[in-house]
Simulated assay, not measured.
Amino acid sequence: MLPEYHRQSASLRARLILPATLVLLVTVIGTLGYAWLGREQGATLLDALFMTVITITTIGYGEVIRLDAAGRIFTMGIAITGIGSLFYSLTVIMDNLVGSRLLDPFGEKKMQREVRKLKDHIIIAGLGRVGKQAAAELEESKVPFIIVDPRPEVHGYAVQRDYLSMQGDASDDAVLEQAGIYRAKGLIVTSGDDASNLYIVLSARVLRPDLFIVSRAVDESSVSKLIRAGANRAISPYAIGGRRLAHLILSPTVIDFFDTVIRKGEESINLEGIEVRGDARAVGQSLAGLKLREKTGASVLVVMRGNRVLPNPEPELVLHPGDRLLALGTVEQLDRLEALVGE
């Protein structure tokens, strides 16, 4: 679509050159001509330009230069040439506007520019029921994302909600590259077919070995396959939904608490995972020495070190590269904590 769009736009711009040039030429000739005709009346160039403009635009506010027979003949020539050129120019411009909209109904050109600006974004492969929920959560969290789906109706749905989207198969390397996979922070694979999810995960892992990939598993037995294919996490929505229903009966207060803290929107309290990078200033320092609570206001609930989970960490605990802190606090408090231990 884009090559055709550019070709048609170039053609329309070329069509505009002749009439626009004629309008400019008529304006210059008319201005000089009226200046010469009104030389004995003390006419200025502004008066001459005014006469030219009201003639070719058919406004007719009144003549500021009295015309003799030669002047009237000159005016008729300016009117015939100028009016025709002006209206043809307007016709070409309207044709350009309408043609551009028909050739690019979903604003592909603008969308491509926005995609090129994306950085540290999330790619959502597939916009079914699961993908729509993921997109809604990311939008609420103000996390940039782009949707990749081959179905035209999904593309229209995304445009209506002002989501960045691309129509294409996410298992195609070229499509993932266009979606900015080399600049992406993560990939969410939500297709309703495990085979498609497997191909998408494999393609993404080859292109970006360090990309964090989360995949939907339609069948519980596909979870291990998706993990082996390269997904960091593979989740069965049905299994998650079943466990959630059971937990709502067994521990409703706990579930309500986690529903509150894991939502990033305008909630007053949030739960965030923060990784300690290898070059961070916090490496080698204890929690007590860092004074995290005093400096940030956030509370560190858990330290995850590899496969070990260290709940209620002691103040003497020394942070290692790759440690992940599970912390509780407001958005501002968590931002301060991330700045202190993550950089």
Rank of each mutant, 00 (worst) to 15 (best):
D210M: 08
D210C: 02
D210T: 14
F212G: 06
V214C: 09
S215N: 10
S215H: 02
S215Y: 04
S215G: 06
A217R: 06
V218I: 14
E220D: 13
E220A: 10
S224H: 11
K225G: 10
I227K: 08
A229P: 02
G230P: 05
A231D: 02
A231N: 02
N232R: 13
N232W: 05
R233L: 07
A234Y: 00
A239M: 05
I240N: 08
I240T: 11
I240E: 15
G242C: 06
R243K: 11
R244I: 11
L245P: 09
L245F: 13
H247G: 13
H247A: 14
I249W: 04
P252I: 03
T253Y: 00
D256H: 12
F257E: 15
F258A: 14
F258T: 13
F258Q: 11
I262T: 15
K264W: 08
G265Q: 14
S268E: 14
I269G: 02
N270A: 15
L271Y: 03
E272S: 11
I274Y: 00
I274D: 01
E275D: 07
R277I: 10
R277K: 12
D279C: 04
D279V: 02
A282K: 00
V283G: 04
V283M: 06
G284S: 08
G284M: 08
Q285A: 11
S286Y: 01
L287N: 01
A288S: 07
G289E: 14
G289F: 05
L290V: 15
L290D: 01
L292E: 08
K295Y: 07
K295F: 04
T296H: 00
